[in-house]
Design a protein around this nucleic acid. Sequence first.
DNA 1: ATAGCGCATGTCAACGTTGTCACTTGAGCT
DNA 2: AGCTCAAGTGACAACGTTGACATGCGCTAT
Lengths: 340, 340
Amino acid sequence: MVTLRDVARMAGVSAKTVSRVVNDDPAVHSETRDAILAVIRQLDYVPDHAARMMRAGTSSVVGLMTDVVATTPYSVDIVRGAQDALRRDGRTLLIANTEGDRVLEREYWRMFRAHKVSGVIYATMYHRPLDLGEPEFARTIVLANCFSPKGDCPAIVPDDELGGYAQAAHLLRLGHRRIGIVSLNPVLRASVLRGAGFRTAFAEFDVPFEPDLERPGFTGPIGEEMIVAYEAALDLLRRPNRPTAIICGNDKIAMQVYGAAASLGLSIPQDLSVMGFDDMTVIAETLRPALTTVGLPYFEIGRRSVEIMAGLPAAPQAERHQPILVPCPLVERDSCRAIA
Amino acid sequence: MVTLRDVARMAGVSAKTVSRVVNDDPAVHSETRDAILAVIRQLDYVPDHAARMMRAGTSSVVGLMTDVVATTPYSVDIVRGAQDALRRDGRTLLIANTEGDRVLEREYWRMFRAHKVSGVIYATMYHRPLDLGEPEFARTIVLANCFSPKGDCPAIVPDDELGGYAQAAHLLRLGHRRIGIVSLNPVLRASVLRGAGFRTAFAEFDVPFEPDLERPGFTGPIGEEMIVAYEAALDLLRRPNRPTAIICGNDKIAMQVYGAAASLGLSIPQDLSVMGFDDMTVIAETLRPALTTVGLPYFEIGRRSVEIMAGLPAAPQAERHQPILVPCPLVERDSCRAIA
DNA sequence: ATAGCGCATGTCAACGTTGTCACTTGAGCT
DNA sequence: AGCTCAAGTGACAACGTTGACATGCGCTAT
């Protein structure tokens, strides 16, 4: 293991001077600096993280506490986004997956303390309010995809309402007037917010909102829900005056809507336009025709969580925070078309 | 920050004795131990990772180097599996995503050194041979989903050949004799191995292997390939003597096969049985009917990578390793049925 | 000439933990 | 009584780095 002292000895200077070079302290003569840099390269010296951490009392590691996020295809992008932002200054992410287990979560908070993480991003799978309790933790905590109703933590969440608006407005602009909805579990915050978005869009186009054209795409309690979008879509499409477009709560629902339409001999987008949500590329890019959908900006949320943390004092403050809203972009593919 | 000395002072013993208790050294009187444990709980003492790391010269962290694995829905399970195995003894995972960038990879090797990781799992997105080069790294490296042709690293990979066999054998057992294949990019190792598996199964059932019933489901170079399974399936299903079953290279292909079948008015599984690969639950459980497929045992591969590492000496040896094969389990759902 | 200054570099201690070795105590032996 | 031995405990140093402070140099302003 190559240490500062090894470099110092070989360069004929003191360890401290090498330390200064490593830390970009300008108070080093440029000749000395160059000589030392040469030796560092030659010996392939890597500063010891442990020693630095010990000295500094904090590490360059950021903790990511998640329920199941890091492990589901849906939202790994939060992880990617955070890593992307951290990598730029050589920092790293320590990932903890609670799988919803409170005991495990407590254990992980201790682990974060042990690792002296400089902050924690707490990310959830669903956009929802969250009560952190009192996680005896004297470092910044940023909530991602969730928020504290008390506003005691900075938070960043997708703008589901605007996303819902985007779904509806796009179809309305294409001329659709009878629009079916196969929605997420209605207790989900995302579902409520997007509903509000639909209504705004409908109102703008003077289209009455028909509750009768809305069906839940899932049943059962959260976490063990069953997808029933296929049946919901059949139901909507068999109506005498069937909708010309269907807004889906997510891309999985859209996938079943495709199936239902096909089984009735309906072609997408000729006979039916379909609008997804989430932009799960595995689905959206593979479906034929490729699915027009609204993206959940998870990468962006991860990235900005880190930035928010960087812009905050190291110790949590008693100020109130409003959740930051990240827009959900419309991703146009081939499943929606204008009608006469 | 509560330290050993704080605990020691409060318990009226030396720091070393507390250290012994924390490390389960039996040479501590049980009364002393209990008293110390009480104080530890009371003060909520957490051993400082940095100091331990410094002392030990190695950390309880394991590095995970990946090309894109940790960030794709396909193979996050490697990460989950590794984390699951590590959590049991309070160890953790440091994840590095190279995105295929060699420079970044070098950087990450240094980061792993800086963090004194106790070992590295090197995981790839595709099952493939891998030349690590000389990653000046004096710790155990385990390859996951890839292997060194030179055999200089322990490796663990899915048994694609057996997986291919399972796909074909299942359909043959159900009575299918005309079986179409929409395969992965044929240059992929997985594709070659599974092909061998098919052939073995076909031979066992005395069914001739008809190259004419095989179509690639992707075109273009790896990494920027286009999925054309829809067209491939149409092509197969429009044949005068169309296959009664189709084996797919992955579940995305299966998804397009569903679409193609529907567009021809064919019902699954009545008119056509479909067999997937990968068990991407997002797809396999959402398709109607749910997809019978063969699972890629990524979770298991991640878990066992850690176990393999634990069973190995800390410094790499010059012995030769055979890749360990993990079976790919058949996951029966509703897309295959017996024919008369 | 010399005090005062800024620049470049060095010395030292401390961060929290644990391995090494040494010490104390009391039991069990001759 | 004098010995060994084991069990239980403690003192100390060291791991690699960096902040606080000190040093030595050449310069300018007095």
